[in-house]
Design a protein around this nucleic acid. Structure first.
Length: 231
DNA sequence: GCGACAG
DNA sequence: ATCTTGTCGC
């Protein structure tokens, strides 16, 4: 994996916001995905030792089977605090390390958090997509910004998430009777396509399998069959 | 000034 | 995110 430019991480909030305003211009909200996607990955982060250590996990699933084919976990000292709107500066470093540990990069990333549905349109999914140049989607469990109507209680239905006269994401019902999720474009993908892929990766649970697997890894427990077999 | 606020 | 067991409901 190659990163376009040198990217600083030791920034204060003011500099981080300035950088976001620069990077936002590089995000592509139009479809630019591989012809055939066979590897979809879930990305999530957890914390250890009272938050002093950040643990990132990437779960690569085959598509359309959605079976786990490879995973990677990486740890780094936590250096940036949690500040709404600046989440990527806290979690992306560890995620990049985890991605570097994969034998094969995935074709699509489903990131835990917002993408375009961000105050400056540069949520963690956009930021990560830009740095890796991989198509990415933001999958959030709760809202960061924007307003929306009630979502019909039927799997697959969604309503636009609007902020400042602009549609920034989709509030999607992935399952009846539970809270909807917040889907938004990350990089190299449009909103409609992003919703389609989230649904394709979702089974009987509220969250996509990619996210569930990544969360399982980022939060500890490993059980049953191990990761992918090595050549 | 006050409320909101991904993980 | 994290601290944490049982419990209510489909």
């Amino acid at each position: 994996m190659r990163i376009h430019h040198e990217h600083p991480w030791n920034l204060d909030s003011k500099a981080a916001i300035a950088l976001q305003n620069q990077l936002r211009r590089l995000v592509k909200i139009e479809d630019e995905l591989p012809a055939d996607i066979r590897r979809v990955a879930g990305v999530d982060v957890g914390f250890e030792d009272e938050g002093k250590v950040t643990r990132a996990a990437v779960a690569v699933l085959d598509y359309p089977g959605l079976g786990l084919i490879e995973s990677s976990i990486a740890r780094l000292p936590t250096v940036f605090p949690y500040v709404p709107g600046l989440l990527s500066f806290r979690e992306v470093p560890a995620i990049l390390k985890a991605l570097a540990g994969l034998a094969v990069l995935p074709d699509l990333l489903l990131v835990d958090g917002q993408g375009y549905a961000h105050p400056r349109r540069l949520g963690i999914a956009c930021h990560l997509g830009l740095l890796t140049d991989l198509p990415s989607i933001g999958v959030g469990k709760t809202r960061l910004c924007g307003r929306h109507e009630e979502v019909p209680d039927e799997k697959g239905r969604w309503v636009p998430l609007v902020d400042k006269q602009e549609i920034i994401g989709a509030v999607l019902r992935t399952r009846r009777g539970v809270q909807p999720i917040y889907v938004s474009a990350g990089h190299r993908i449009g909103l409609e396509t992003a919703v389609e892929w989230v649904l394709r990766c979702t089974g009987r649970f509220r969250l996509p399998e990619t996210t569930r697997q990544a969360h399982r890894l980022a939060s500890g427990w490993v059980s049953g069959a191990g990761p992918a077999p090595g050549p």
